[in-house]
Nucleic acid binder design. Structure first.
Lengths: 113, 113
DNA sequence: TAGAAGTGCAACCATACAATTGCACTTATC
DNA sequence: GATAAGTGCAATTGTATGGTTGCACTTCTA
């Protein structure tokens, strides 16, 4: 597993219907059919969305008799969150360095270009 | 500001080219033309991606003479990260409650259903 | 053992979207 | 003032994707 494929995970989270699905799963594991009853889309459409979410590692299927329920993986979302936070901080750190540099009134005197 | 439109922000982060752009901006503000020189896509394509990123609040345009440079907004990414972390934790918390319940060996004795 | 409920797979459709090219307009710079 | 560099907008195109319906197959259950 390549740690956290950022674009893939974010793309999976980039669809409103998938958030609807995840929100439902957040209250308990559910099957595709059960989700289709709760949401205004067909069972097959739900199935495709679940595939996307599974490939992103955000849900895990679990066979229960004849049905397959899906569980939302909070740890995976947490991993993504940490990665995004790390990147965001590095951007901010850079901006801070720039500001410092701008405020320092040219100590050397040589205003290069 | 509508707090953090989760699907919109995630969709903006869901494209590899946009990550390329953000990565470049992470090392300093750049114009669309400058980015087009650094990446294997046309200036117009870059422009559209920058629009998407701007609408998601992830970059901010800044006019500098005849060119417009874009700055990556780390704080915005941080806000998204916090939100995702919060949601992930709630999922995990639920799972923990389930496990606890499963391990507790039916204290009441009435196995309903 | 029917039959209902669930899954899996395939075909199909409309729209969204990433990317391109082309052109007009603005703004530095020589 | 001419030219080069940058931006903005429009038209086009190919492909990805979210959605649908239909059907065969499995598995509980009445």
């Amino acid at each position: 597993m390549n740690a956290t494929d950022l674009p893939t995970m974010c793309a999976a989270l980039g669809d409103p219907t998938r958030w609807d699905i995840l929100t439902q799963l957040g209250t308990g594991a559910k099957s595709a059919s059960a989700l289709a009853r709760l949401l205004p889309v067909s069972r097959q459409a739900i199935g495709k969305h679940l595939d996307v979410l599974r490939e992103a590692g955000l849900v895990v299927p679990e066979r229960r008799g004849r049905e397959v329920v899906y569980v939302a993986v909070g740890a995976r979302l947490g991993a993504l969150a940490r990665e995004l936070d790390r990147i965001g901080r590095s951007w901010e750190a850079r901006l801070l360095r720039i500001k410092e540099l701008a405020e320092r009134p040219d100590p050397d005197g040589s205003s290069r270009r």
